[in-house]
Computed example of a mutant assay.
Amino acid sequence: MASVDPFDSALDLLRRLNPKHTADHLNNIITLNPSLAEDLLSSVDQPLTVRRCKQTGRDYLLCDYNRDGDSYRSPWSNQFDPPLYDGVGGAGGVGAGGASEGAGEGAVPGERVRKMEIKANEAFDVYRELYYEGGVSSVYFWNLDDGFAGVVLLKKASPSGDATSSGVWDSIHVFEASKRGRHTNYRLTSTVILSLATKGASLGEVDLSGNMTRQVEQNLLAENDESHIANIGRLVEDMELKMRNLLQEVYFGKAKDVVGDLRSIGTLSEGQRERDTQRELIGSMRR
């Protein structure tokens, strides 16, 4: 009998547990098997966490792409919190010997990619306000051998003062941009984590939680760095619109149909009278 891979077993278990509590389930599995920590944290999408930048006072989102151990890099100040290397490192927690390319392990993007990261954060901050009317957004870039990559994070939660209902939307858009002549190849993987809950005397308790992942790949003309920001913005905007419509029309529509079939607003006697009337009409049409 072939041995079971612990990593595959952990992923299989997480798929069967309530996605609303993914972070807690993930921590429990890592506690049981610490050797799976890095692989699980880089493979499993979990609800985004908000932290405030100590240098700028602005909120930013935490994910595996701006993490080094227990420290996270702010896109606003380019600094890690808590600081890395006991405060000896350079900007962004990079050692004094030079900038570190790529994501993870104290890395910050190179100068050109960092400038694009700053512009992307400004652009998606406007996008967040227009589409979400609040919430938090963060964008992180890193260098690749033949281009660059990044992640766009968006989070919107309902006001915490409402005790009867709650809702959280987390969207994670990971992309790679590779130069192909005059065009650039963009590969985008988008994940939406949605959690909705309400309770009351008339409705009872309802909890809808889940996640959805979609991918797209396009070759687009990019004449300069500003073109990259515009292309990424259009790809993310189109993907979010498609996923929002899919959630509304397919998932919520199906849930509404199921609830409508299981629960009737009228009484049993009214339902029986309607069925009797229907049978009489059908019988009279056959005569």
Rank of each mutant, 00 (worst) to 15 (best):
Q79S: 11
E205R: 11
S195D: 15
T164L: 11
L247W: 15
R51F: 12
G150E: 01
A37R: 05
A222L: 03
T184F: 06
G98K: 06
G147C: 04
A107I: 07
E38F: 05
G106I: 00
Q215G: 07
D276L: 10
K20L: 05
S165E: 04
K119D: 13
L32G: 11
L13A: 15
S71H: 05
F148I: 10
L246C: 11
G69C: 07
L13G: 05
R182C: 02
K54H: 08
S165A: 13
R58N: 13
D8M: 07
D8Y: 04
L61H: 10
V126F: 12
S209K: 08
A197G: 10
F175K: 00
S9P: 09
R214Q: 12
D45A: 09
A230Y: 08
P47W: 05
K20V: 13
R58Y: 01
F141A: 01
T31N: 14
G97R: 09
W169V: 07
Q79P: 05
T277V: 06
V236E: 06
P82L: 05
R73G: 03
Q46S: 14
E176K: 11
V44M: 03
L14F: 14
T213I: 01
S202G: 11
R67T: 02
Q215K: 12
C53W: 09
G134M: 05
S71I: 03
R187W: 02
R287N: 14
Y140V: 06
R263M: 14
F80T: 07
P83I: 08
V136I: 08
T22A: 00
L241F: 15
T213S: 09
P109Q: 01
D39K: 15
D12H: 14
C63Q: 05
G135A: 01
V250P: 02
V88T: 14
A230R: 15
S71A: 08
N224S: 15
Y65M: 12
E111L: 09
R273L: 05
E237V: 06
L36T: 10
S160M: 09
S195T: 13
L246T: 12
L17N: 10
E117T: 09
P159K: 07
T164A: 13
P83K: 08
R214T: 13
G106A: 03
R128M: 06
